[in-house]
Simulated assay, not measured.
Amino acid sequence: MARSAVMRRLTGITLAATAVTGLTLATAGTASAATNKNGNVESGEFGLYYNSNFAGCVFDLLESDGNFSGDLFRSSTSSQSCPGQGQSTDNNTASYWNRDVTAWDVYTKASRGGIKGSLPLGYYGNASTTFKNAISSAYYF
């Protein structure tokens, strides 16, 4: 059974706050209002960019996606276009940013197939030659 995004985020926020302050939190606040696949990498999401160096349109994930086929890069605003807008995300990613509270795994084939790469929380950078324009699925853990 998959964990809900809210519970995953609340757990991560609680753990991070405890580690930083050294205090145990009695309650957790409301989770951020991140919106899945809206073209904006918000806090709590994993973002894939069409171009290297975080350029171009974005494919942002709040939940795991086992098959990028049919998923498209989007602009963060409806009034502006960006390189890659409307292009398939499948095998088309050049850089990424993990703004989630947990690590993500990416795969070169759908449904956890092919080569696996792990991206720790807070990680950002250009895809290596193994993963550039080769990612087809992503899962948080």
Rank of each mutant, 00 (worst) to 15 (best):
S79E: 04
P83D: 11
W97D: 10
N92V: 11
A94L: 13
G70A: 13
G113R: 03
D65A: 04
G125K: 05
N53G: 13
T89Q: 09
Q85D: 01
Y50E: 01
Q80Y: 13
A110Y: 04
S128Q: 00
K109W: 04
G117P: 00
S69D: 04
D105K: 13
P83L: 13
F59E: 04
S95C: 08
Y107P: 02
S88C: 04
S64A: 15
N40M: 06
E42T: 08
G86Y: 02
R112G: 13
V101A: 00
S43H: 05
E45R: 12
P120M: 03
L61I: 09
S95A: 13
N40A: 12
F59R: 05
D100C: 01
G125A: 06
Y123V: 03
A134Y: 01
P83M: 09
Y123H: 08
G113V: 10
N126C: 11
N53Q: 05
D105W: 07
R99S: 09
G125V: 05
G125W: 00
G84W: 12
S75L: 01
F68V: 07
P120Y: 11
G56V: 08
N38V: 08
S118K: 10
Q87Y: 06
P120C: 06
C57I: 08
G47K: 03
S52P: 07
D90E: 14
F54Y: 15
G114Q: 00
F54P: 00
T129W: 10
